Amino acid sequence: MVAGEASGDLLAGLLLAGVRQRWQGAIAHGIGGPQMAKQGFRAWWPHHKLAVHGFSWELLRRYREIVGIRAALGDRLLAAKPDVFIGVDAPDFNLDLEARLKAQGVKTVHFVCPSIWAWRPERVEKLRRSTDHVLCIFPFEPELLASHGIAATYVGHPLANVIPMEPDRAAARRGLGLSDTDEVVAILPGSRQSEIRHLAFRFFRAAALIQSARPAIKFIVPAVPGLLPEIEAIALRSGMAGRLQLLTGQSHTALAACDVTLIASGTATLEAALFKRPMVIGYHMSWLSWQIMCRKRLQPWVGLPNILCRDFVVPELLQDAATPEALAASVLQWLDAARQEPAKIAVLESTFRALHTELLRDTASLATDAIEKVLQS
Rank of each mutant, 00 (worst) to 15 (best):
F85W: 07
G54W: 08
C136R: 10
N94T: 07
G40W: 15
D92R: 03
K102E: 09
E65I: 02
D92P: 09
R61K: 13
S56P: 02
L50I: 14
C136V: 05
Q35G: 01
A37D: 15
P114Q: 08
P139N: 08
L95R: 03
I116Y: 12
Q104L: 01
E125L: 13
C113G: 10
Q39K: 13
A103G: 13
L73D: 00
K102D: 09
R128S: 06
L101T: 05
H53L: 12
A51G: 15
T131P: 11
K49I: 14
A72D: 00
G87N: 10
T131L: 11
D83L: 01
R123T: 10
W45Y: 15
A80E: 09
P114V: 07
P139D: 10
E65F: 12
P114A: 09
R129N: 12
R42N: 14
L78Y: 02
G74I: 00
I86Y: 04
I137Y: 06
A71F: 01
R128Q: 11
A79N: 08
L135Y: 08
I137K: 06
P46F: 12
Y63H: 14
H110Y: 14
A43H: 13
F93C: 00
V112A: 07
V124Q: 15
F111D: 04
I86S: 05
R70M: 00
Q104K: 03
K107Q: 10
R120P: 11
C113W: 07
E98T: 06
A103S: 10
P82A: 02
H133I: 03
L73I: 01
H110R: 15
K126L: 15
D92Y: 03
Q104R: 02
L77G: 03
F138K: 08
V134S: 04
G87C: 09
D92V: 00
R42F: 11
H133L: 06
R61A: 08
D83P: 04
A79H: 07
V124N: 14
C136F: 07
A37Q: 15
G74L: 00
R100G: 05
H48W: 11
P114C: 11
L50K: 12
L60I: 04
R61L: 10
K126P: 05
Q39G: 13
R76H: 06
W45F: 14
N94L: 04
D89R: 07
G105N: 03
D83N: 06
V67D: 01
R62C: 06
E122V: 14
E65L: 13
D132G: 13
L135A: 09
R128E: 09
R76S: 07
P82R: 02
L135M: 08
L101A: 02
H53Y: 10
R42I: 06
A79Y: 01
D89I: 02
P46L: 11
E125A: 15
I137G: 02
D75T: 02
V109I: 15
E122T: 14
Q104E: 04
V124Y: 15
E65C: 10
G87K: 10
H133M: 06
Y63R: 07
P91E: 03
L73P: 00
D75R: 00
A71P: 01
V84W: 05
T108E: 13
R42V: 07
L78Q: 00
I116E: 09
